[in-house]
Amino acid sequence: MQLKTGPQKAAALLLTLGDDKAAVLFARMHEDEIRDLSTAMATLGKVPADQIEALCHEFADSLGNTGNIVGSWEVTERMLLKTLPRDRVSQIMEEIRGPAGRTMWDKLGNVNETVLANYLKNEYPQTVAVVLSKVKPDHAARVLSLLPEATAMEVVMRMLRMENVQKEALEGVERTLKMEFMSNLARAQRRDAHEMMAEIFNNLDRSAETRILTALEDRSREAAERIRALMFTFDDLQRLDSAGIQVLLRAVEKDKLALAMKGASERLRDLFLKNMSERAAKLLKDDIAALGPVRLRDVDEAQAIVVATAKDLAAQGEIQLSDGRDEEMLT
């Protein structure tokens, strides 16, 4: 690591001084200075001893025996805990672990548009308007296109009527984003690897899922079983109660539902038909019969859309999804 910037040099010096002496210096700093130094320290990496000697001539003798130092997330967190409350340290660490950017609006500009849209769709239109007015236009456009149509139109109208946002209101939005969205995002980025792989497997087509999971079983049966337990597949929809199925039926496009049901098990198909009116059930059966032969890939894609819709509804609290595969639904 080549020390180039002021924060990098200051971070190296603090690491060299050790926890206790660094704590004394941290106690005399402003929060912005602590955040800047923490970011530099956490990303510093390995610094050769000769650079440390060149950085601090007055401590050359003692530093000469220090050898290399390593800046890491763990070391940074340990140092901060010497002087700051644990909740404040957690907030700082989550901020610097989050998407890169100096300000909150810089950070939001580096958040995937789908992730940001999924969060904003549950916020007040005025809040969404403020956020989209602060990020770059191309990013705002992608987020806006992913919002529900009614919400997007309301946000557009708010943005058209928006004047200068009062400083207090802007700070309130920033605080909310820091405490709720960015903190949750940072925690999500550190989620269990098996959960991440389960989500990836949920998006594989059936043949690829079977092939890769079978190969994984040969390498690590325990890992394969954990991933299977965490996956939520189309067949798991039979765990929904009647009210949940009816909500899902209203949310899924009829052509996608027919295609998905074309490849459904008899038990799952019957469960959906029982929760439809007699006329709607007859129409669905007719639609399925009219499809004729279909490609397995098309069926898989339709079933993935139904599952994704169910997950969105669950995230909004409109239906309840079961996590495991050990429970049986009572019908």
Rank of each mutant, 00 (worst) to 15 (best):
K178T: 02
M231P: 04
Q189I: 00
V143Y: 11
N164C: 00
D270K: 13
I288D: 13
L284C: 04
V165E: 11
R190H: 12
T43M: 09
E149G: 04
M159D: 02
N202S: 15
L63I: 11
A310Q: 10
T176N: 10
R219Q: 10
D300W: 13
V165Q: 13
A129M: 04
Q238I: 10
V111A: 07
D36T: 08
E217V: 00
D36K: 13
P85F: 11
L84P: 02
P148A: 09
E77V: 00
E168N: 11
V24T: 11
H194A: 04
T210S: 15
M1E: 13
H139D: 10
V75N: 05
N112K: 15
S265M: 02
M41N: 11
R325P: 00
L237H: 13
K167Q: 15
E171R: 14
L230D: 10
R78V: 00
D20W: 08
T176I: 02
L17Y: 14
D326L: 05
R226Y: 06
T331G: 12
G64K: 15
L15P: 03
Q303R: 14
E301S: 08
K167F: 05
A281R: 08
V47I: 14
K254F: 07
F181H: 08
L25S: 07
E58C: 01
S277L: 02
L170D: 08
L84N: 08
D241E: 12
T43N: 15
K46T: 11
A10N: 10
G172E: 13
E217R: 15
K256Y: 07
L44A: 05
Q316W: 04
E168L: 03
Y119I: 01
I305P: 00
Q126V: 02
E180L: 02
M153P: 00
R239H: 14
S183G: 05
E123K: 10
T43Q: 15
V130W: 11
A169G: 05
N118Y: 03
V47T: 08
E327T: 09
D286N: 13
M179W: 04
I227Y: 11
E149Y: 10
T39Y: 15
L213E: 09
Q189L: 05
A223R: 10
V89L: 06
A12Q: 07
G263K: 11
V89M: 07
R35K: 14
A304V: 00
I52M: 12
M182T: 04
T16H: 07
K311P: 03
V131S: 06
M93H: 06
G317I: 02
L271D: 06
A49W: 03
L248E: 06
A243L: 06
R35Y: 08
S133M: 07
I69D: 07
N275F: 03
A11I: 01
S133N: 15
E278P: 00
S145E: 14
T5A: 05
I52G: 02
A40H: 13
V135D: 06
M231S: 07
A117F: 06
E217T: 07
L321C: 04
L13D: 03
E195Y: 08
A260P: 06
I288W: 14
L313I: 01
Q8H: 09
R191H: 09
L13C: 01
A258Y: 12
Q126C: 03
T16G: 12
K311S: 07
